[in-house]
């Protein structure tokens, strides 16, 4: 392979590798949510999925040659003009700041439900819980 093609491929990988990593994380999280039997493992899968989405938003906020969205020289900044290309996009950072806290809150509620289920059924394996539920139903009839 000659050098220009290789350089093009490298440029392509550098331009897109964040999406591929995020897609891999999303797949891991989704698989854990669907296929795992243990409820805590499902919750961990949900958290991996949320982390992937947070990384996605943060990665689209980046700009090459830009710094964090804090205006340099704070209150003296009126003297020089502010260029939007010099600072990263603050909006996804704001959205994800709140999303992180909400993901912690959903994690807390999910774990509380798991604790409640464990107290009632003394297991966190989904098939065992379903068996017990079926047994309860047939006892009622």
């Amino acid at each position: 392979m000659d050098a220009p093609v290789l350089a093009d491929m490298l440029d392509f990988v550098i331009a897109k590798y964040n999406y591929w990593g995020i897609a891999a994380l999303m797949m891991i999280g989704l698989y854990a949510m669907i296929a795992k039997n243990n409820l805590v493992k499902k919750i961990i899968g949900m958290n991996i999925f949320q982390t992937a989405i947070i990384l996605f938003f943060i990665s689209i906020a980046t700009k090459w040659d830009a710094t964090i969205p804090i205006i340099i020289h704070g209150h003296g900044a009126h003297a020089h003009s502010i260029h939007a290309a010099d600072y990263m996009n603050p909006l996804p950072h704001v959205l994800m700041l709140t999303a992180i806290v909400v993901s912690v809150a959903t994690l807390g509620v999910a774990l509380a439900l798991a604790v409640g289920i464990f107290q009632r059924y003394e297991t966190l394996e989904e098939d065992n819980i379903l068996e017990q539920l079926k047994a309860d139903e047939s006892n009622l009839r």
Binding site: I14, A15, K16, Y17, N18, Y19, S59, I60, A61, T62, K63, W64, A66, P69, I82, A84, A85, Y87, N89, P90, L91, P92
Partner: peptide, 20 residues
């Protein structure tokens, strides 16, 4: 999708420029 770190990506324009 737009390439990583592109300052002209749709997400980095419009309201975000005004904020900055």
């Amino acid at each position: 999708f737009p390439p990583l770190g592109d300052p002209h990506a749709p997400a980095n324009r419009h309201v975000s420029d005004d904020y900055i």
